[in-house]
Nucleic acid binder design. Sequence first.
DNA 1: TATGTTTGCCAACAAGCGTTGACCAACGCG
DNA 2: CGCGTTGGTCAACGCTTGTTGGCAAACATA
Lengths: 199, 199
Amino acid sequence: MTGSLSRSTDSGAGPAARRSDATRTAILAAARERFAADGYERATIRAIAKDARIDPSMVMRYFGSKEGLFAAAVALDLRLPDLTQVERDEVGRALVQHFLGLWEENEELTAVLRVGATNQAGAERMQGIFRDQLLPVARQVCPDPEQVPARAALCASQLLGLALTRYVLRFAPTVALRPEEIVAWLAPTVQRYLAAPSP
Amino acid sequence: MTGSLSRSTDSGAGPAARRSDATRTAILAAARERFAADGYERATIRAIAKDARIDPSMVMRYFGSKEGLFAAAVALDLRLPDLTQVERDEVGRALVQHFLGLWEENEELTAVLRVGATNQAGAERMQGIFRDQLLPVARQVCPDPEQVPARAALCASQLLGLALTRYVLRFAPTVALRPEEIVAWLAPTVQRYLAAPSP
DNA sequence: TATGTTTGCCAACAAGCGTTGACCAACGCG
DNA sequence: CGCGTTGGTCAACGCTTGTTGGCAAACATA
């Protein structure tokens, strides 16, 4: 009941490092992996707990529910670059390159895409990412403000389509493509969607 | 409700129209709807049976298992046009138009896409559709036979990306686009992926 | 040492799932 | 009429799921 959480080793800046932090991050890592591999429904709390080598009830204690765990596991920040600093006719290439790098190293993105395809809450989360992160960047580049949503949406369709076929559906020819090839093919597309005059 | 044709009037050609055919198709329709709306795991046999107003056990009798039902519900034929009959620089537009028409009228495609994102068997089914239906068409148009798989894969990424954002994730700006706009934007992309010299 | 808080495991719950088999009501036909 | 086939319901099975509460150690503080 006491709110006091003073610790002997709490020296100065930042919150004290609790013993449970290790388990917490272990759970989150296992959750990301499972969500990415299996999607929301088939990624069971029991399996995640087994991966993290703790009891399923701990997951509930730390994250309240399965939805809470998912929300905590995939807190997505695309870290999109500031396109005002990029040459006007290079924004397409910059965006594709950035996205590809994200997907290659980060399995959260596969998780959120897989869940977005199954789950209503997941879809809404993706809508939020699109609205809060991609739309503003598109606004920096698009000529006509009124066309920003449509153009950003077209970019999303191409970028997510690549991610879908390469990381989720695993089409053989798409998986075989080297990153440079992908950039070379997709950059002009994204460039046109973003900045070229409308057809 | 049954509208059953009498067996005695079974005149010659084709198998007799059984009374159960109505239920069968009702189950399939309900299954398509549920799979499209909920994905594989959350589309329960019980819910499908309730939609079709019959007992869950009937689904098992007719289709053996949930996987059997899914296989029967989404037997996918894209009916892709013969691109050798189309002007060389119009194949992009033709393909986009055809795909868009399919998606707009046919919820099987949403179902198979949603399931492909969750389910291993679903993903393999999509790989098969790509291999057996899109690849051959690309072979009709691509200049260099060696590039056919990569080029077809790029087309798939754009077309499926559109379907994903429009019909599954339901991004507002993508949903708002009129079909003609989509064709106008995507046709040049697909055209370039298929037939333009590699970058 | 004594006390209260963390951290964790265990066993169980209620609900929902796919699936099965027993049983019943029509129907077609001799 | 009687009888086999068909179309259908019902009740249950075994299992897995998310979730809960109790209890025992480990630890921190006094």
